[in-house]
């Protein structure tokens, strides 16, 4: 159904768009969807909009850590995708069910991806979830076994404001987008854009596209985004040569 080889050009080259415009698209400001969400939290799901552009119509999509299912419901309604969610939280699972999103209440840390056969989804999405799992390497490997294309987004702990906070205050930062203290944050894997690039290299994962989000705008990643990006989104696949495990 999807062959990224036939689409060498990334589908999106849009200019960064202001927040106001994003809101007009009708994106759900479902703050509690965000992993470890609490209030306050980022209002705009820039990655939702971007993922809706990346995912091809009619594709099969597995969303790991799908929260309340708003992304999958939007993909179903706007792109006719066949959705499948995985979520560990009972209340969020109930919200998925209200939206008619098929969901499995499982914990990614239990290595549950053996529930799915090889290459059984066109897209596997890990939206702001990588930083919460116990075994990120296993999850990355498994998502690219199960899916033809992987989409990963995460908060960039290398953002200048975080660096500045640690440098000047000497404590872990608590910001609107990272509202937790170090001792109660679900974000147990604090990584930077550069860390992720090295991580992909080490795990022989091919990066197809890169995007970043900062100051309410998003666009293709730029040179200094390890410093400037608040959040990052990657489109990944396993190189054809290394199809074996």
């Amino acid at each position: 159904m999807l062959d990224t080889k036939e689409n060498p050009e990334p589908p999106i080259r849009s200019k960064p768009r202001p927040v106001a415009e994003l809101e007009q698209v009708g994106l759900e400001a479902d703050a509690s969807d965000i992993a470890g969400g609490g209030s306050p939290a980022p209002i705009v799901r820039w990655d939702h909009e971007l993922i809706q552009k990346i995912v091809t119509p009619g594709a099969t999509v597995l969303d790991l850590g799908c929260g309340r299912g708003s992304l999958l419901a939007a993909l179903r309604d706007n792109k006719r995708v066949i959705p499948q969610g995985v979520e560990v939280d009972t209340d969020k699972v109930a919200k998925c069910m209200q939206k008619g999103v098929p969901v499995l209440q499982l914990n990614l840390d239990d290595g549950i991806l053996d529930f799915f056969p090889d290459r059984s989804f066109d897209f596997v999405i890990l939206e702001k979830t990588l930083q919460t799992v116990t075994r990120p390497e296993q999850v990355l490997r498994e998502m690219l076994r199960v899916g033809r294309v992987g989409v990963v987004s995460f908060p960039n702990f290398g953002h200048w404001r975080i660096r500045e906070h640690i440098r000047t205050k000497g404590t872990m930062p608590v910001t609107p987008s990272l509202p937790h203290e170090w001792y109660n944050t679900p974000n147990i894997r604090m990584l930077t854009v550069l860390d992720f690039e090295l991580f992909c290299e080490r795990n022989k994962v091919e990066i197809v596209e890169r995007y970043s989000f900062a100051d309410g705008e998003y666009g293709p990643m730029e040179e200094d985004d390890n410093f400037n990006a608040e959040e990052a989104l990657y489109v990944l696949r396993r190189p054809a040569a290394s199809n074996g495990r």
Partner: peptide
Amino acid sequence: RALTRTHKAVTYVA
């Protein structure tokens, strides 16, 4: 797991 491995429509609540 037996259902998902053959793409049956399934919702699981634990």
